[in-house]
């Protein structure tokens, strides 16, 4: 059994919160540059130029990419041969979020009592933590700050299986269409197909963590992604909804077997500030 200090987890989470909010990944930057080359709308081109310039300013380390530095979504793959010592795993992650959001001058966007008082918790906790136990003696931590504007544009529907592939495509395209400029396009479209509904949404969220534009390894799913992307970029929404041909940078789908009676589909949109950083301890 390998021992891992809880403090090391706290330290890593704090660092990842800061890195994710200041340094846009090379994959996303490449996607934005590609969109800039193909965008037909002059307004859209201007917007994309501003987003690329924004990323340069943020990378200097003084101003985060977006003022909405998100709720901290943390995916943990915990090796079953690891024994966390000196504290518990969840508390260590929460402490990391608290530290990262304070030291990084990141906005605290969490409110307690969601349907009533909505009081800011003051330190951006609680984090949204998803733990999977995996073989091995390592811990993989992935931190994805998720902004409210794009998270608000989330959709879940359980289709009758007869709707099939076309039903999935239509539902996703409809979802992006009705979101318009709200989720800060060009977006990454996270799609979950299958499972039970709570899992369907988690598949959509997990799909967003894949390096931008990397197709799904299953050719059938990769083809679905391509077909949805093609349809989405014909909607005309464009950068920030001000018109254009770059509505999505990519579509990422994940699937899971489901009940004989069901075809659940979830859509979780990610703004152009597609932030996630990971490390292995």
């Amino acid at each position: 059994m390998r021992e891992l200090e809880a403090a090391a987890i706290t330290e890593a989470v704090a660092r990842l919160c800061i890195e994710a909010n200041y340094n846009l990944g090379e994959d996303v930057l490449a996607g934005l540059r590609q969109a800039r080359e193909t965008e037909e709308s002059p307004v859209g081109q201007g917007v994309l130029d501003m987003l690329l310039r924004n990323a340069e300013i943020a990378a200097q380390g003084e101003y985060p990419l977006c003022q909405d530095t998100g709720l901290a979504v943390v995916f943990v793959e915990l090796g079953q041969e690891v024994h966390v010592v000196g504290g518990d795993l969840n508390a260590a992650i929460e402490a990391g979020v608290r530290q990262g959001y304070a030291e990084g001058y990141l906005r605290k966007s969490a409110v307690a009592r969601p349907f009533s008082a909505r009081i800011n918790t003051g330190d951006n906790t609680p984090a949204i933590i998803h733990v999977t136990i995996v073989p091995g003696d390592r811990v993989r931590l992935l931190v994805a700050p998720k902004g409210g504007g794009s998270e608000n544009m989330s959709y879940l529907r359980v289709l009758p299986p007869a709707k099939g592939r076309q039903g999935v495509i239509d539902f996703v395209v409809e979802s992006v269409d009705q979101s318009g400029g709200n989720p800060c396009p060009p977006v990454v479209v996270g799609v979950g197909v299958g499972g039970t509904v709570e899992q369907t949404m988690l598949l959509a969220k997990r799909a967003l963590m894949r390096p931008l534009g990397q197709p799904h390894p299953d050719p059938e799913v990769a083809e679905l992604e391509r077909d949805i992307l093609e349809r989405v970029n014909r909607l005309g929404i464009g950068p920030l909804g001000l018109g254009g041909t770059s509505t999505a940078l990519a579509v990422h789908a994940e699937t899971f077997p489901c009940h004989i009676a069901s075809l659940p589909v979830a859509v979780n949109l990610q703004c152009h500030s597609a932030r996630h950083k990971e490390t292995v301890l």
């Binding site: 101003y63 003022q67 909405d68 001058y105 906005r107 504007g149």
Partner: peptide, 21 residues
């Protein structure tokens, strides 16, 4: 808009728009 915290010596942090609807 709801800005991120200002660093010392700066008037404000990051300060982009939020969704208007």
């Amino acid at each position: 808009m709801g800005p991120s915290p200002a660093r010392p010596g700066r008037p404000i942090g990051s300060a982009g728009p939020t969704t208007s609807y």
